[in-house]
Design a protein around this nucleic acid. Structure first.
Length: 271
DNA sequence: CTGTAGACCTGGAGGC
DNA sequence: TGCCTCCAGGTCTACA
């Protein structure tokens, strides 16, 4: 999927939908990570989109009443396209608007994405309520990570990818952040010093912040809502670079599976 | 409570 | 060309 910077890039690309009224939601395939509730299309009909926010990797459409919650999973994409645009494979859902030649199209080959409606408090939704801090908020700091990592025996990479601790640190940015902080992904979380937590928090904020500024990582032609491509993938220092020399020291980058996910790092630079 | 493996699903790449 | 295996941006759920 899109990692957090890609979701944020998508969110920014959805601005043209503000103040538009949803005329119809067309569901061609309801079989997403959770089946799309058959009632949603009736509930959101004629509602106005007042804002599009983001919590973790969830896009939150603020309607007159209630919220539409969309997750892109691994391969999901939201694009604003012309009503005349041909329907392609995996174009599962369309949102059609009143007085508009454009529509919002949800495409997701692997169907790990999801679409939910929450009537009341979005923070109480079952997919949202357990979530930890946003990486860019100031409460996510070295004191917090140090406290959270105490007594943990798991690898630090798994801890920073745990959404109950901090959200939005996906597989690419976890490897990149650990490289920038010069910390081995296999380090036991409980062994992290206060200073290392400080470096890691700073690295996560820098990597994610920079990636957002650059429009995300366009792996496999990932594109934002307006079709533009991101450039952050050109900045990857270790992710997907197994066997290539480290940009810092020249030693070959290695790949190791942690928590069933590929992790990339430099044995020389990361301790 | 913690940590890990399995599950969901499609498609592309590479080997034979 | 076809078939097989492996791998992929996420994260919930079950189980030890």
């Amino acid at each position: 999927m899109p990692e957090l910077p890609e979701v944020e890039t998508t969110r920014l690309g959805l601005k043209p939908l503000l103040k538009k009224t949803i005329q119809e939601m067309v569901v061609r395939d309801h079989r997403l990570r959770w089946p799309i509730d058959v009632n949603i299309k009736n509930i959101i009909k004629n509602k106005v989109i007042h804002d599009v926010k983001r919590r973790a990797k969830y896009l939150v459409f603020v309607l007159d009443e209630g919220f539409l919650l969309i997750h892109l999973g691994m391969s999901g994409r939201l694009s604003i396209v012309s009503k005349k645009e041909n329907i392609k494979k995996h174009d599962h859902v369309d949102f059609i608007f009143q007085d508009s030649e454009l529509l919002l199209r949800f495409n997701d080959p692997r169907r790990f994405g999801s679409i939910h409606y929450e009537e009341k408090e979005i923070e109480q939704h079952f997919l949202i309520k357990h979530l930890g801090l946003e990486p860019l908020e100031k409460e996510f700091n070295s004191d917090y990570l140090f406290k959270k990592s105490r007594k943990k025996t798991q690898c630090i990479k798994n801890t920073i990818m745990d959404s109950r601790v901090v959200v939005g640190v996906g597989n690419i940015y976890a490897s990149e952040s650990l490289f920038l902080a010069a910390i081995k992904p296999t380090r036991r979380s409980g062994s992290m010093t206060k200073y290392e937590c400080e470096r890691l928090v700073a690295a996560i904020k820098k990597i994610i912040g920079d990636a957002i500024k650059m429009g995300g990582s366009s792996i496999n032609d990932y594109a934002s809502a307006n079709g533009s491509l991101g450039y952050f993938q050109q900045e990857h220092k270790v992710y997907g670079k197994a066997g290539f020399p480290c940009s810092q020291c020249g030693q070959l980058i290695v790949k190791k599976v942690l928590g069933q996910r590929s992790s990339f790092f430099c044995k020389q630079c990361q301790k």
